[in-house]
Design a protein around this nucleic acid. Structure first.
Lengths: 224, 224
DNA sequence: ATGCCACTTACAATCATTGTAAGGTTTCTC
DNA sequence: GAGAAACCTTACAATGATTGTAAGTGGCAT
């Protein structure tokens, strides 16, 4: 069953939305506090997020902007603002659909269902800028080029992408790739890093992986 | 560069749309005859199809319905009909977005770009009912279960899906899987068919592959 | 009943992937 | 600028998954 997370501060409307989705057979949930919404949303592991724009604290736009790059679920923006400029802003920030209030429940449900179906195959895809990685198969796509990574290369890139644009230390990489935090040869990481870099180069990502001497590695891809 | 195919019978509007997309840097094309649109569209290998509803011959809805199951590109319906019922019909037939005329070019462009970005990773995904297959990695998803096929299994399933629900003869399967139409042992096909069936069973597709004695094999999955 | 077609299992060859080892290059420090 | 530390790269051998071969079983049709 699909889980839908609704982010809406108006109590009445929120309950109505939750109810609409539940009646349609979805697993709907909604954070009620807006202290650290982003963490709450992530914790709920949504298949779809329905997002209001006018929220206490961070606006829906800001939320969308910050969640989008690392999220692997679609975001539907539902707002009372109905200008073209608002729609363009929302889509520009990576929103997957934009509906204005008041919105007929059937329209909302139909649009949501469409997004869920489309994204079923994308739940396991990480995206950073124009780079995307399927975390099941380690198929990587950059711009228009595609390449299949081997498992180890994939695991490394996955971690780098999840943390981009932050540095990832070897102490974090090794356990994540080889399971045990047990002593892992320094070298084996370097070898695989070398292989990964070669793979990235083949799709046109020349030196996306940088080494920070003594600290670890960073993935740097131009954001859109 | 993305190729966008516009299906619209009004000459003036069609040219305007083509121009809009071209100015925005896309490769836009539009069939002018509506005799066998479907074949023409497929031949253009679109990354996105913008579809009018009122067309001579088959309606946009019919086109959408018949293209959708095998298409691996998004469909945006653009129509003068603006009722909720129209939108629900379109979405129900598998359309990926629904816009009403007149439509501001910026809105159309923003919506199109969003679809293109989302579908970049889906261009290689075949879908039959609730079964989908990534033709690069042979990752298969049925309902909520996922499994990675081996290359040979994947090639066979790919062909069966492309032809579903028609029968595929061994004379068609063997060359497609092993390249040469050269004599290929009957047995090797059976062995791999057996392996594929086992894989499908593991995701809950018990006996989706049927043998038609003396003819070949069919894939039968319940359509949505 | 017999022959054909289809299915399955076990095995061995092949190929991709992985870690090991060793030598080279860059960067920082004194 | 010499030396050490950190990082990079290449070649090779072991491992493991995938593939085709072979052989035997089961079912359908005339």
């Amino acid at each position: 069953m699909f889980r839908i997370v609704i982010v809406e501060d108006d109590d009445y409307l929120r309950e109505e939305l939750v109810h609409t989705f539940q009646k349609a057979g979805y697993d709907a949930a909604a954070p009620v506090s807006f202290e650290s919404v982003e963490a709450e949303i992530a914790a709920l592991r949504p298949d779809l997020v329905v997002l209001d724009v006018n929220l206490p604290g961070k606006s829906g736009y800001e939320l969308c902007k910050s969640m989008r790059p690392r999220s692997s679920f679609p975001i539907l923006i539902l707002t009372a603002r109905d200008t073209l400029a608002d729609e363009l802003t929302a889509l520009g920030l990576g929103a997957d659909d934009f509906l204005t209030k008041p919105c007929h429940p059937d329209r909302l449900l139909a649009r949501s269902e469409r997004l869920l179906q489309t994204w079923k195959c994308l739940r396991c895809v990480l995206t950073v800028g124009e780079l995307s990685l399927d975390t099941d198969t380690y198929k990587l796509i950059y711009k228009d080029r595609m390449r299949l990574l081997t498992e180890t290369e994939g695991k490394i890139l996955e971690l780098l992408m999840k943390n981009s644009p932050d540095v990832v230390g070897k102490d974090a990489l090794c356990p994540a790739v080889w399971g045990t935090a047990e002593f892992v040869d320094e070298n084996i990481l370097q070898v695989n890093m070398s292989r990964l870099r070669k793979s990235l180069a083949e799709v046109g990502l020349g030196d996306a992986i940088q080494n920070i001497r003594g600290k670890g590695y960073v993935l740097e891809v131009d954001r859109l």
